[in-house]
Nucleic acid binder design. Structure first.
Lengths: 204, 204
DNA sequence: AGACCAGGTTGACAGTGTCAAGATGTCTCC
DNA sequence: GGAGACATCTTGACACTGTCAACCTGGTCT
């Protein structure tokens, strides 16, 4: 996330545009996004965003980058003080889902490769950083539990599982209603998830 | 998926429109979808789709429904002849990812609650059917391995894991490139996934 | 034969992203 | 302090979009 220097006309228009974008996507989903609506909410003319972000992909990429930066912060806070790699993995899983739930607008574009410039340097740095963080935890787990663990595969599986959970989370209740079944709280699901993954990772 | 009776003007316009929609979404993603472009590809005027699907949500819902119907077929074919519940779960996981990869246009809208009418009866029937299929396998696994297994939680986790994998699959290679790591083939990942999940389900 | 209607077309409307051109405030340099 | 120079934002235009109303048109039924 680039730090924009406050400008004279508007306090910090780029930040305001990102906030409005996240808000709008949280309300209507990525397809409901509209550059003009964002400009309207930020109180500027329809062409103002172009001056900071080029086109709408640029703005969405900036929001996605901000989301990954936020995710990295959440990861760092989650593992703070934890030494046991298993606990660290669990904490990061919860942090991932929490971030997705708390920043739905950001999360909606973070993995939407179709609508962002996923080779923009700042975006690459933030997203790869998050992945490397997970990979580091996996390396610790390998060292502690199972020297033969394929850490890349384990990281991919963990990311997939948590990402899927975060993606489907908003619809889980509606499915439970239709099928007349129950849904466990997200928090508990992640705990069970971690237990399963870990027992799998340890099992060689 | 409703079976449309061939009409006199066009052979089977609804099916042609669904096919064009899936093709378009596969190319440009859900946000790149355009009703007029779909009509253009089907060789009809821009207002023709409305006659069959009401608005664009109706068309997208129909495509999503078709995707779930296809998924149910894939599930049925995958488990055909298999008696061991663990093998059935593994086969369904692969069928899920295969369907997502083979029908990217359909997959892109199947879980996109923001842009479809997810309470349309035909859609509910098809999507709930797929979930119930998974739930049935989980019940078999519970009976065979662990009577205390929470099958709803297990089903949610499995669906999340496989869905996440299917969602992230297109981007895995690009991530591997950026981080200079390796990515195992999808097929192998699912195998490892199943082993892990099963050992988790059986535990305790 | 005549009415009816599903299926499709045409034309209009407001809304969209993007581009070019103009306005306006702030900075630097002499 | 005045004058460019520049970043920032506005205005206006263009082609495109989804949706609606009005209009044809080929097939069906009584």
């Amino acid at each position: 996330m680039p730090v924009e220097t406050p400008t004279y006309h508007h306090g910090d228009l780029p930040a305001a545009l990102r906030a409005a974008t996240a808000e709008l996507i949280a309300e209507r989903g990525p397809t409901g996004f509209s550059l003009r609506e964002v400009a309207r909410r930020a109180g500027v003319s329809h062409a103002a965003p172009a001056h900071h972000f080029g086109d709408s992909r640029g703005l969405l990429t900036s929001v996605a980058t901000e989301g990954f930066v936020q995710l990295n912060i959440a990861f760092a806070e989650a593992v703070d003080g934890l030494t046991d790699p298993v606990e660290r993995l669990n904490a990061c899983g919860k942090a991932y889902v929490s971030t997705a739930v708390n920043y739905p607008g950001h999360f909606g574009v973070m993995c939407a490769d179709e609508i962002i410039n996923n080779d923009e340097p700042e975006f690459v740095e933030a997203s790869v950083g998050a992945y490397l963080h997970l990979l580091g935890i996996m390396a610790d787990i390998r060292d502690a539990l199972n020297p033969e663990l394929d850490i890349e595969a384990a990281a991919t599986m963990t990311w997939s599982a948590v990402h899927g959970l975060a993606t489907l989370a908003p619809g889980l209740d509606s499915v439970a209603e239709k099928t007349e079944t129950k849904t466990a709280p997200l928090h508990d699901l992640i705990d069970q998830f971690t237990v399963m993954m870990i027992s799998g990772f340890a099992a060689r």
